[in-house]
């Protein structure tokens, strides 16, 4: 393995070259005079702004608030979603009652509920977390339901024949079988959680990275605005990679196991 490392490093650097080309083009474009420099700051200025932001507490604090909101909502949504999905797959009656509600709200743009939550809970973390929770809940329900529902009958029968208790059925048969789907749902929900947290901050909030970006935009501090956007893009990218890595570790036994390199 260690012998392969330089090759992987080289490979990684080679992959980064297009980003460099992009930065060079950006530099040329903002210096060409075709676009007003105020609207498209030079990469150099944005980089300086980024360094400045990372030194101060502003971006780190607001980013922490946003991440707290999105992860809390995601966690609550994931736990509730797995339970509801599980119940839906196991109980026909429960499914009949819940299906129209899930089906109806699945395609509802969840950000439409933000004004409602502002009305109910005021401006702040509760509104953001509620919006994130709802947005994460539905993909979790649908994916868990699909995963549990497709458990092969043979597996269920064998487990029943071996005298598994209800609890064992759950932890040894249904949940492991649904895990790949649950992870898929979790990755979708992760994407939603950032979108909803930032949207609710942009619509009405006193803090958070969404508010910060909007504030910089309104006050015309465009290089800072670009730097703050870069921060959230990187944070989302890293979260997504961590999610892929966790999926890879937890599903190493599964045939769908994807290596973190190719995914």
């Amino acid at each position: 393995m260690p012998a392969k490392l330089p090759f992987r490093l080289m490979n990684w650097l080679w992959q980064m070259v297009p980003l460099l080309i992009f930065v060079v083009l950006w530099h040329l474009l903002s210096n060409s005079g075709l676009i007003d420099k105020a609207f498209l700051p030079e990469p150099r200025e944005v980089f300086a702004a980024l360094v400045d932001l990372l030194r101060g507490p502003q971006v780190v604090e607001n980013l922490a608030i946003t991440l707290f909101r999105s992860f809390t909502g995601l966690l609550l949504g994931a736990v509730a979603g797995v339970w509801i999905g599980l119940l839906m797959a196991r109980s026909e009656v429960f499914r009949a009652y819940v299906t129209p509600i899930v089906g109806g709200t699945y395609s509802l743009p969840k950000s439409a509920l933000i004004p409602l939550f502002i009305l109910w809970f005021g401006i702040g973390s509760v509104t953001a977390i509620c919006a994130v929770f709802l947005a994460c809940l539905l993909p979790m329900i649908v994916n868990t339901y699909h995963g549990v529902n497709t458990t092969p009958k043979v597996l269920v029968w064998s487990a029943e024949a071996m005298g598994y208790s209800q609890r064992q059925m759950l932890t040894r048969i249904f949940l492991p079988h649904a895990l790949p789907d649950i992870m898929t749902g979790l990755r979708i929900a992760l994407g939603f959680s950032f979108v909803l947290a930032i949207s609710s901050e942009m619509i009405a909030s006193t803090n958070g990275i969404g508010k910060l970006i909007f504030m910089y935009g309104e006050s015309g501090a465009y290089s800072y605005m670009f730097a703050a956007i870069a921060c959230i893009v990187v944070a989302a990218f890293i979260s997504d990679r961590i999610m892929l890595w966790l999926t890879h570790i937890w599903l190493i036994w599964h045939e769908s196991a994807v290596s973190t390199e190719t995914a």
Binding site: V17, I198, I213, I229, V233, A236, F237
Partner: peptide, 24 residues
């Protein structure tokens, strides 16, 4: 090779964060 890093970076990013840029 040219587009892959942008797709990899752009796909998981919350696009709504770019709204102020588009407004400007």
């Amino acid at each position: 090779w040219l587009l892959d890093p942008f797709v990899a970076l752009g796909f998981p990013s919350p696009k709504i964060a770019f709204l102020p840029v588009f407004i400007v």
